[in-house]
């Protein structure tokens, strides 16, 4: 559906007395989302996962690298043509409280894009109304209750469903969900995740899921792919289950080790990994970007930066000279 090769993005910090410093958000990322597939990006904040999501949704351009949608490279196209391609990829924002226009009812919010579509395709006005109801039913809310209301009259979970319904008005082939459940109450989160999963299964919509909560990635697509991003570089990539149960990159291991253990239900993994120091973005080493914080670093790691590959015969790809699977995730405690 959409592939990217060698995507880089640098933000220039301006207005600083000393000229500011450049922040390299992405350092040559390759990705590939298949039709109907599920891909998850995980990483700490500032690792570039949101930037990548925005590039995929066409809201941000990259400095170098190429994005190809269904075989068409985006680089040579004019703005309008590019827009037509990116319309099929819709972004679902993190914050359902600010993603909806507070002065418009849900009816107005959903009706505007549908009416435009009806005009373009020569359908009747009644179709737009019917479609708005259909979409709301699809995302699991009662159209009769929601349509005449303003966003502030709805709960966070309902608003997020409305945002998803709005994204569906243009019949997208892919949804980019950037931390879409982090601001929603715990008991309702799973409902939104189940909805995304359901849309994927029923409509064949691809889902790109961006999160720092790895367990939710599992829920969206066990058959999906997981990308672990660290400082703008993919450090591990493979089938979700494999990366979670047998991670080989020390950064992935540190990330998974940090997940709280539900004591009483689970016990911690036997080989938990902890970074040796906190992240300091000012240091950009020529070697492995994680080397400074890595408890397993060797001289080799400091001299050269490893690239993504299957070195050591692992089922997943990784960027590490010393890949070794470790059991770091909490395991079910036997009752």
């Amino acid at each position: 559906m959409i592939t990217g090769t060698g995507i880089t993005k640098t933000y220039k910090q301006r207005g600083h007395i000393l000229g500011g410093r450049d922040v390299q958000a992405l350092r040559g990322v390759d990705f590939d989302v298949k039709k109907g597939g599920a891909v998850t990006f995980i990483g700490e904040s500032g690792c570039g996962k949101t930037t990548l999501g925005r590039i995929v949704a066409g809201l941000e351009t990259c400095d170098s690298g190429e994005i190809v949608i269904d075989g068409t490279p985006m680089s040579g196209l004019r703005h309008r043509q590019r827009q037509a391609h990116f319309r099929r990829i819709q972004l679902i924002h993190q914050d359902p409280y600010s993603a909806l226009n507070p002065t418009r009812t849900i009816y107005q919010t959903l009706h505007a894009p549908l009416a435009l579509r009806a005009r373009q395709t020569g359908r009747s006005k009644a179709w737009a109304e019917e479609r708005a109801r259909e979409l709301l039913t699809l995302v699991g809310i009662d159209p009769g209750y929601v349509l005449p209301r303003y966003p502030h009259q709805l709960s966070g979970g309902m608003r997020q469903r409305v945002v998803i319904a709005r994204a569906l008005t243009v019949d997208p082939e892919m949804l980019v969900a950037d931390e879409s459940v982090s601001m929603i109450d715990v008991s309702l989160r799973l409902g939104i995740l189940a909805l995304l999963k359901d849309l994927r299964e029923r409509l064949g919509v691809s889902v790109l899921f961006i999160t720092h909560d790895i367990a939710t990635a599992r829920y969206i697509g066990e058959d999906g792919e997981l990308y672990v991003i660290y400082r703008g570089q993919v450090v591990e990539r493979g089938p979700t289950e494999t990366v979670i149960s047998a991670p080989v990159h020390p950064y992935t291991q540190a990330l998974l080790s940090a997940i709280p253990v539900l004591r009483g239900v689970e016990r911690p993994g036997a080989e938990r990994v902890e970074p040796t120091e906190a992240l300091d973005e000012r240091h950009v080493d020529t070697g492995c970007l994680f080397a400074r914080r890595c408890p397993f670093r060797t001289d080799e790691c400091e001299a050269e930066r490893p690239s993504l590959g299957n070195g050591g015969g692992t089922p997943q790809e990784h960027a590490c000279f010393h890949p070794r699977p470790r059991s770091v995730i909490p395991v079910e405690a036997c009752a």
Partner: peptide, 24 residues
């Protein structure tokens, strides 16, 4: 009970996770 079941976990059967119906 519902709240604990609503937490997606890293091990075990992911489909055992269930959302709580309704809202707070």
């Amino acid at each position: 009970q519902g709240l604990i079941r609503a937490i997606p976990r890293l091990s075990g059967d992911i489909d055992e996770a269930r959302a709580l119906p309704g809202r707070p």
